[in-house]
Lab assay of single mutants.
Amino acid sequence: EEWMVEKALMVRTGLGARQIESYRQGAWIEGVHFKRVSPSGESTLRGTTWYNYPEINKFIR
């Protein structure tokens, strides 16, 4: 699984929702560690946020 939603990321990493938000707003790079995608497939600020687990795992190492 490369891309996953927040709940799956929480299960895989043990991070809480606030921790994920903090990383997203600070250290993680949009387009690398996470992306927002609307149902139409376009990038957007209001779409579902998807997280790239392999890239996040590399960051944590």
Rank of each mutant, 00 (worst) to 15 (best):
E1M: 08
E1R: 07
E1Y: 09
E1I: 08
E1P: 09
E1A: 10
E1K: 07
E1T: 09
E1S: 10
E2L: 08
E2Q: 08
E2C: 11
E2T: 10
W3Q: 01
W3C: 02
W3K: 01
W3E: 01
W3H: 01
M4L: 11
M4I: 15
M4C: 07
M4Y: 04
V5C: 12
V5H: 11
V5K: 12
V5M: 15
V5Y: 07
E6N: 03
E6V: 11
K7Q: 12
K7P: 06
K7A: 15
A8E: 15
A8L: 12
A8M: 14
A8R: 08
A8I: 11
A8W: 10
L9A: 02
L9H: 01
L9C: 02
L9I: 08
L9K: 01
L9Q: 00
L9T: 02
L9Y: 02
L9W: 02
M10C: 06
M10S: 07
M10P: 00
M10H: 04
M10T: 06
M10W: 04
M10I: 09
V11M: 14
V11D: 13
V11A: 15
V11C: 14
V11H: 12
V11P: 03
V11Y: 11
R12V: 10
R12I: 11
R12S: 06
T13Q: 02
T13L: 07
T13G: 02
T13C: 05
G14L: 04
G14S: 05
G14M: 04
G14C: 06
G14W: 03
G14A: 04
L15C: 04
L15Q: 00
L15N: 01
L15P: 00
G16K: 13
G16N: 15
G16W: 06
A17C: 07
A17V: 10
A17M: 09
A17E: 08
A17N: 06
R18E: 14
R18M: 11
R18C: 12
Q19I: 06
Q19M: 08
Q19N: 04
Q19A: 09
Q19E: 14
I20L: 07
I20K: 01
I20M: 04
E21A: 13
E21Q: 10
E21S: 08
E21M: 08
E21Y: 08
E21T: 06
E21H: 09
S22I: 15
S22D: 12
S22W: 14
Y23Q: 03
Y23W: 08
Y23H: 05
Y23D: 02
R24T: 12
R24L: 14
Q25L: 13
Q25V: 10
Q25H: 10
G26M: 10
G26R: 09
G26Q: 10
A27L: 09
A27I: 11
A27R: 07
A27W: 09
A27G: 09
W28F: 04
W28S: 00
W28D: 00
I29D: 04
I29G: 03
I29E: 07
I29P: 00
E30Q: 06
E30V: 05
E30L: 06
E30F: 05
E30R: 04
E30D: 06
E30Y: 08
E30P: 05
G31Q: 04
G31C: 06
G31V: 04
G31E: 05
G31M: 04
G31R: 03
G31T: 03
G31A: 03
G31Y: 05
V32Q: 06
V32N: 03
V32L: 10
V32G: 01
H33T: 00
H33G: 01
H33N: 01
H33S: 00
H33K: 00
H33L: 02
F34Y: 12
F34P: 01
F34H: 03
F34A: 01
K35F: 06
K35I: 13
K35D: 03
K35Y: 06
K35S: 07
K35Q: 06
R36K: 12
R36A: 08
R36W: 15
R36D: 11
R36T: 15
R36Y: 15
R36Q: 14
V37Y: 08
V37F: 08
V37L: 09
S38I: 13
S38Q: 12
P39L: 13
P39D: 14
P39K: 08
S40L: 11
S40A: 12
S40P: 14
G41W: 07
G41E: 11
G41I: 08
G41P: 10
G41M: 08
E42H: 09
E42Q: 10
S43G: 12
S43D: 13
T44I: 09
T44Y: 10
T44G: 14
T44K: 10
L45S: 13
L45D: 15
L45W: 07
L45I: 12
R46A: 15
R46C: 12
R46V: 14
R46M: 14
R46N: 15
G47C: 11
G47F: 13
G47M: 11
G47T: 13
G47V: 13
G47D: 13
G47S: 12
G47W: 13
T48A: 09
T48L: 11
T48W: 06
T48E: 15
T48H: 07
T48M: 10
T49A: 05
T49E: 05
T49S: 04
T49W: 15
T49N: 06
T49K: 03
T49V: 15
W50Q: 05
W50V: 13
W50S: 03
W50L: 15
W50P: 00
Y51D: 00
Y51S: 00
Y51L: 01
Y51G: 01
N52V: 02
N52S: 05
N52G: 00
N52F: 06
N52P: 00
N52E: 01
Y53F: 12
Y53W: 12
Y53P: 01
Y53E: 04
Y53D: 02
P54C: 10
P54R: 09
P54T: 15
P54M: 09
E55G: 02
E55H: 04
E55Q: 07
E55Y: 03
E55R: 05
E55K: 05
I56G: 00
I56W: 01
I56H: 00
I56L: 02
I56M: 00
N57E: 15
N57R: 13
N57H: 12
N57S: 14
N57F: 13
K58R: 09
K58W: 06
K58T: 07
K58I: 08
K58Q: 07
F59L: 06
F59W: 15
F59T: 04
I60A: 03
I60G: 03
I60L: 15
I60P: 02
I60K: 03
I60D: 03
I60M: 13
I60Y: 04
R61Y: 09
R61N: 14
R61E: 13
R61T: 13
